[in-house]
Design a protein around this nucleic acid. Structure first.
Lengths: 155, 155
DNA sequence: TATTGTTATACTCTATAACTATA
DNA sequence: TATAGTTATAGAGTATAACAATA
């Protein structure tokens, strides 16, 4: 094949000079691998996130979970439905405020959560191979700054 | 308001311990700000990316652009349509291979591209405020590693 | 037979309006 | 009246199959 005129890899120096561009590509790389990692557990990234947050915040309401996940309430319904239908979480009326549901993990949900978390930790080790611990700390600190710089960062 | 029982911010320590979680949040923060930055130019992130790559790779074909952008060919058609309809790029038949189109920026396209790039650079400075130059270099190097660690990284 | 660009289509994700039941 | 959860729906973004023109 003749790639003398048209090189295989096109010039993307302009974009590569943007931190945001590299950040998105790194994030996509991790998300892709994470999706594969969660497949054996029949979890998507978003259902995994919800499961972990419910486990770590017993009795959480859907509204507060939606706010924490930055997901619109209507969209959270199907996520919670999915976890409940698989008996990974329970949805119980709160006696003091019968509008809200208290979300809690079932024993099966806790087991699956723990197993998935182990797999995710292995996935992180895989994706961060070659990045030293000290560098990872610098990376995390820099990311925290960037997150804090978002429009209306603190409010 | 009584937040004695239910704190405002729920515990997300488990997820915060994952680099991928922070990476995605930082990426989302930048993407959100970038979308706002590009609005005055009536560009979306994906049309901006295409415009820059066409400018930097004169005569590019749609297939190669799609491959570079990691976009399916059918989805690129509408992106190229949009840029062509706005007279930012031209789409001309290649005489040596009449199947392919050669993509090139128009003068208007180059002007808009340069102006948008200036705005994007200002956006980057804004989003990276508080992250020192040395730290940025470490960040970029770490991101390059992560991107390289993606499944079938080099092939 | 393979490739470029295209159309049509479907599936996921996300966003908004409007409803119900409770407060 | 305001809030929690829900339904229906609409809009992005993305993925696949199949086609016409060309190689």
């Amino acid at each position: 094949m003749t790639d003398d005129i048209q090189p295989h890899h096109i010039a993307d120096d302009t974009l590569a000079g943007l931190v945001g561009y590299r950040l998105r590509r790194a994030s996509n790389a991790i998300q892709g691998d994470l999706s594969e990692t969660l497949k054996p557990f029949e979890l998507r990234m978003i259902t995994f996130t919800a499961l972990v947050l419910i486990r770590d915040n017993a009795g959480l309401s859907q509204s507060r979970l939606a706010a924490a996940m930055d997901v619109e309430r209507p969209n959270l319904v199907v996520i919670v439905d999915e976890l409940e239908n698989r008996d990974l979480i329970t949805r119980e009326r709160v006696p003091t405020d019968r509008r809200t549901y208290a979300l809690n993990t079932t024993p099966a949900g806790e087991t699956l959560c723990a197993e998935a978390l182990e797999a995710v930790k292995a996935h992180e080790v895989r994706m961060l191979a070659g990045v030293e611990d000290g560098t990872q700390a610098v990376l995390v600190a820099a990311l925290a700054r960037i997150i804090g710089n978002r429009r209306g960062g603190d409010e």
